[in-house]
Design a protein around this nucleic acid. Structure first.
Length: 467
DNA sequence: TTGGGG
C-alpha cells in the first residue's frame, strides 16, 4: 500500500527547469509559464509542429523550449496568452548541439493549459488526449501564478518597431493587434494588423499610363474585404497587410485570432504598389500578449485620445497642415479618414479628408475632358487607413481646375498634385511620385438602387486645385 | 521521423 503511494508520488513529480536540463533522455514532468509561442507549421514529416518556450523560478530568464508534434493543427497546444501555464506529463529531455530542449511525444506525452492570472480557476482550457487531471495539480499551478505576480514583466516592446517607424528590410519585430485573418489562396494567408499609428507614406513607382489596363490597386488582397469586415476595423491608424506568400512552409495562421495583441519576431517589410506589406517567413515567430499588456494598452489609449479629438484624424505625417495647393470650402468641418468614409453608416453623405492623390485616370490632363468638353476623371486617393477611387465630374471639375486652364497650366497642376518633380525631361511618366497631403471634400452616393452598398461611389466637390 | 538558441 505505502509502496503504491510512493510510486504514484514519484510519477507525479514536476522537475524544475534547471533539473530537467540535467536529465538528458529521461521522461519527466514539467510545469512552467509560457513566454513565447512559435507559429504552428507543417513539419517535413507527416505532422504539424510548434515550439513553445517556458520559464519557472529556477530558470526565469532563458527558459527551455518544448517541441510539439501532432497529427493536425487542432491537437497542438493553442496558447491564448503569453503568461499562461502549461503542464507537461511524460516529455523527453533531448540534447541538441549546445543546448537542451524537450520533446512532446504524441505517443505518450500529454499537456494541459491554464490561465496564468492569479485567482483564475484550475480548469484547463485545453488538454491533450492522454491528459488526466489530478487534485495535486492545483498546488503547482497556484504556486506558479503566485510567482508570476512577483516577477518583473519583460519589456517586450524595446526591440519592436511601431508602424509609424516601419522601414523596408529584414528581421524586424512588431507588436500589433490582429484585426482580421483570411486565406486568400490555398495555403496563402493575409493578416490585417494595427497598432494605432500611421505608417509613413511612400513613393509611387507605378507608371501612370498603365492606369487603364493595369491600375494601381486599392488593396493587396485579391478580393476586397467586405464592408462588414471593414466596419470592425478602427477608423484611425494604418491597417498593415501581412502575407506568407514567400514562405514555402505551411503555417497554421488560422490559429491567429482577431482581437489579440501579438508580438511578431523576424518579419520582413516591403512596399508593394506603394502599400506597406509585412512578410511572414518560416523563421518568423509570434507570441500572444496578455490583454492587459502595457504596450498594447498604451497603443489603445493613444488611439482613444486621437479618436476623441476633433482635429487629430488627419495623418500624423501630414505636419503641420496639408499642402496649400488645394483649397476646400467648409474650412470648419473636421477631417475624417478614408476608413471613416468606407464604414459610414449611410450611403449618401459628405466628408472632408486629408489624402494623397496616388494616380489619375486618364493619365494625361489633355484627356480629362470628354469630347463634349465635360470634365470626367478618376483619382486614386489614399490616407494611412485606406485607398479609394474618387471621381471628378462636370461642374465639380470646373471648380477643381478653376475653369478650363491651358494645357501647359493643367500639366503643371497635375504634376503638383501627384508630386512629380518638374524637369525638362519629357517623360514624367517614368518618375517616382511623392504626392503631397491635400485636403478634399467628398460625397458618397449609389448608382444602383437594387445594390445600394455594392454600387457606392465617391465624388470630389467644393475642392479647388490652385497648383 | 519531423524541429531545435543567439
Amino acid at each position: 500500500m505505502s509502496n503504491l503511494k510512493r510510486v504514484d508520488h514519484d510519477d507525479y513529480k514536476f522537475l524544475r527547469i534547471v533539473d530537467a536540463i540535467a536529465s538528458i533522455n529521461q521522461k519527466i514532468n514539467l510545469i512552467g509559464v509560457i513566454t513565447e509561442i512559435g507559429i504552428s507549421k507543417q513539419s517535413r514529416g507527416p505532422d504539424c509542429c510548434c515550439t513553445i518556450k517556458i520559464v519557472d523560478e529556477s530558470n526565469a530568464s532563458s527558459g527551455i523550449s518544448i517541441n510539439f508534434f501532432a497529427e493536425n493543427f487542432e491537437k497542438l497546444p493553442h496558447v491564448e496568452s503569453a503568461g499562461d501555464i502549461i503542464q507537461l506529463v511524460r516529455v523527453v529531455v533531448k540534447r541538441h548541439q549546445s543546448g537542451v530542449n524537450v520533446l512532446f511525444d504524441k505517443k505518450f506525452s500529454s499537456f494541459a493549459l491554464y490561465e496564468g492570472r492569479e485567482g483564475s480557476n484550475f480548469v484547463p482550457y485545453q488538454v491533450s488526449s492522454k491528459f488526466h487531471a489530478r487534485d495535486l495539480d492545483k498546488k503547482f499551478i497556484a504556486g506558479l501564478r503566485k510567482w508570476t505576480v512577483s516577477r518583473q514583466p519583460e519589456t517586450a516592446s524595446s526591440d519592436s518597431l511601431s508602424l509609424k517607424d516601419i522601414k523596408q528590410g529584414h528581421q524586424f519585430n512588431l507588436i500589433c493587434k490582429v484585426l482580421h485573418v483570411c486565406e486568400v489562396k490555398d495555403g496563402e494567408w493575409m493578416l490585417f494588423v494595427w497598432d494605432g499609428t500611421d505608417a509613413p507614406p511612400v513613393n509611387i513607382h507605378k507608371k501612370l499610363d498603365e492606369e487603364l489596363e493595369n491600375p494601381l490597386p486599392l488593396q493587396l488582397e485579391p478580393t476586397p474585404l467586405s464592408r462588414k469586415v471593414l466596419c470592425k476595423f478602427p477608423a484611425v491608424g494604418t491597417v498593415l497587410r501581412m502575407t506568407n506568400d514567400k514562405c514555402n512552409e505551411k503555417l497554421g495562421l488560422h490559429l491567429l485570432k482577431a482581437g489579440k495583441w501579438v508580438q511578431f519576431r523576424n518579419i520582413d517589410f516591403e512596399v508593394r504598389y506603394g502599400l506597406w506589406c509585412g512578410i511572414l517567413l518560416s523563421k518568423s515567430k509570434f507570441s500572444f500578449l496578455p490583454n492587459d499588456d502595457d504596450y498594447a494598452l498604451q497603443c489603445q489609449r493613444t488611439n482613444d485620445e486621437r479618436v476623441k479629438s476633433k482635429w487629430d484624424r488627419q495623418p500624423t505625417t501630414c505636419f503641420p497642415r496639408p499642402s496649400k495647393i488645394i483649397d476646400t470650402d467648409y474650412q470648419d468641418v473636421p477631417f475624417v479618414t478614408l476608413m471613416d468614409i468606407l464604414t459610414y453608416p449611410e450611403v449618401i453623405a459628405k466628408f472632408r479628408c486629408v489624402v494623397r492623390v496616388v494616380a489619375t485616370l486618364p493619365a494625361h490632363p489633355r484627356d480629362f475632358q470628354a469630347p463634349c468638353g465635360t470634365y470626367r476623371l478618376r483619382l486614386t486617393l489614399e490616407d494611412p487607413t485606406a485607398r479609394i477611387h474618387a471621381y471628378i465630374y462636370a461642374e465639380d471639375g470646373v471648380k477643381f481646375f478653376g475653369g478650363y486652364p491651358s494645357i501647359d497650366k493643367m500639366v503643371k497642376m497635375h504634376n503638383a498634385l501627384l508630386g512629380v518633380e518638374e524637369t525638362d525631361d519629357a517623360d514624367s511618366n517614368e518618375k517616382a511620385r511623392n504626392p503631397p497631403w491635400v485636403e478634399c471634400c467628398l460625397n458618397s452616393y449609389n448608382i444602383d438602387e437594387s445594390d445600394v452598398w455594392g454600387s457606392i461611389r465617391y465624388r470630389i466637390f467644393a475642392t479647388t486645385l490652385i497648383g
